[in-house]
Design a protein around this nucleic acid. Structure first.
Lengths: 337, 337
DNA sequence: TTTTAGCACTCTTTTGTTTCAAGTGCTATT
DNA sequence: AATAGCACTTGAAACAAAAGAGTGCTAAAA
């Protein structure tokens, strides 16, 4: 469908625009293709008809459309090796055995953010697959205690519990023992229902005034389920991109970054490294998100790089892929039984 | 030094500017003071000479200078009662006994942010006064464990520990028992030094390969000390203020909000509710911070409201004072022994 | 059939000019 | 001490003109 020169012109325009953020005119491509500007214009016009290029106004040069980026990512770009310098920085992190996995992940994304000037996000391991490993209740005063919940993957959540004077510390102890006995090994996402249907019916037999306690634990567990671990690197980097040059653009993107359902929008993704452009991100029409899931024996989570649509796709894709690999290797080495 | 009318004019200008964000001209004050605009101009000119007023350009009206706001806050403004509606919302939170203190604090600041359109921050209790209550080590795999530290005020911190294969689980257990025996009751800010000078010298007698373990605990404890609990409400509210109307202003304030030493700059403050205007904030010349420390039997922390310099001082001051009181009352009721 | 040269046309950006409204500072007068 | 009057300054808005970049189209050349 597209001629070779047309593909090549599209590729050049995308890459030039990624580099400079300026619309690309026909003249600037003459030397490269050894044809006249009129020829380039003809091809550009065809590419525009096909929806791969856009004009900002009638006499501007062309910029890639969303479909243009898509075509570039799917068919035109070539995998790029990570530069020696960048590679060195990343290797240093993953070969450091003193660093635990989470710190290594955060550090490596910090580096990506630094060298690319994009924003990265790590979404901590989804809690579903975690099994409850231990419930601990530490009394603080007569009327308060703190409940600590630990999963087999090493995640910890805690919640203060307010008790009325009427509750005997011994009863608290009993409840905690009971919960440990009955809940250890349960999947986190099943804890609530087991608590309600298996424990609630019998807890009254062992513990007086169990209701206060039951409610407190129920709440503690539910914060566990909702508490996704979100970690940002270079959150304001995106403001350095020239496309965000009006007050409204900036305000808009910032409030999207702070919005509460951002996490859920980033969360669902594939095992592979995938590219979501503009509307595909469901986040903001002006950004591209490149993301992937990592999965080790004991942990899983999502890595995402957020940048402008004119993102350096080749570079980010390779780097993110590399990091994913290293995370999974490191995770499996440390975590295997 | 200032005549009565001059004070009153200053007060009017500050309040008018707070309300409208437009420079105030001499004519607009004529009716109120029943004098001619020339008279007002004379007084304005004196107020400007004294440094309380500024002009944006030679023929604009006057706006308060930083010193002008300061004078207003110190001598002119009058405490304002909280409106019935606002009061109701706040009371509802603090009279809800099911809510633990932290949730109540967060909810009440959420309300302040909502009704004022400013940004609020809660800095979780400074860790210094906390005493270590319990150290717990939960093994996960052969080479990893999670350390959980709990203080008497109910704060919990955790850190994954990576162990080499060589470490016997029993040794881990021994170390944790030793730490519990020796460290419980120690102030958090003294834990590091006791660990280094009292425990390190003797731990070798009880535990083989103690170094790996020692290092792991050392690191876990230090994250405890640094991990301040920061909670924002209405983080992007400040962008709604008309003074942030250029791209640079917005980018600037946003990156200050994300910067890592913001916490330390907000942190140090007084027991009373205090007002920091512009440069006094050491944060950004264009904002005002109103903040205070709250302190209960078991907890302490900092509350801060960040807004433009033309902040509604009277309102925010009373509301923050009220919340501080309620927090301290609630905290002492629940927490007393 | 493809490529090219040439030219008219469109649109943005920049610059300058004019006009308007707001508000001041100063001086002479009450 | 307060006021009226007036010249003066400035920013904002509206408008015009000119420059620059790049296109689309047509007719000719390869």
């Amino acid at each position: 469908m597209l001629g070779d020169r047309q593909k090549s012109i599209l590729k050049s325009i995308v890459e030039e625009y990624i580099k400079t953020a300026h619309a690309v005119g026909s003249k600037s491509l003459c030397k490269k293709f050894k044809v006249s500007s009129a020829t380039i214009r003809n091809d550009m016009s065809i590419l525009e008809d096909l929806g791969y290029l856009e004009k900002q106004h009638i006499s501007s040069g062309r910029i890639p459309s969303e479909a243009g980026y898509r075509y570039y990512v799917d068919y035109l770009m070539e995998p790029k090796k990570i530069s020696g310098e960048d590679m060195l920085k990343l290797q240093r992190i993953f070969s450091n055995n003193e660093l635990d996995l989470n710190s290594a992940i955060e550090k490596s994304l910090e580096i990506i953010s630094d060298i690319t000037n994009y924003t990265s996000v790590v979404l901590g391991s989804a809690s579903k697959e975690n099994l409850l490993q231990k419930v601990e209740v530490i009394p603080l005063t007569k009327t308060s205690a703190v409940a600590v919940l630990i999963t087999d993957k090493g995640h910890v959540e805690n919640k203060q519990i307010i008790l009325s004077e009427s509750v005997d510390p011994k009863e608290v102890q009993k409840t905690s023992e009971l919960l440990n006995k009955m809940l250890v090994g349960t999947r986190i996402d099943e804890v609530s229902s087991r608590l309600e249907f298996e424990i609630k019916p019998i807890i009254g037999n062992y513990v007086k005034n169990y209701e206060v306690l039951y409610n407190a634990f129920y709440e503690a567990l539910s914060t566990f389920q909702n508490g996704k671990d979100v970690h940002w690197e270079g959150k304001t980097n995106i403001l350095k991109q020239p496309e965000f040059n009006t007050v409204d653009d900036v305000k808009n993107i910032i409030s999207k970054f702070e919005s509460k359902d951002l996490v859920s929008k980033i969360e669902e993704t594939d095992d592979e490294v995938k590219v979501y452009i503009g509307r595909e991100t469901e986040l903001d029409d002006n950004v591209t998100v490149i993301k992937t899931k990592y999965k080790t024996g004991r942990d899983e989570g999502t890595l995402a790089i957020i940048g402008p649509k004119r993102m350096d796709y080749e570079r980010v894709l390779t780097m993110l892929g590399y990091i994913k690999d290293r995370i999974e290797k490191k995770g499996n080495n440390n975590g295997e039984d």
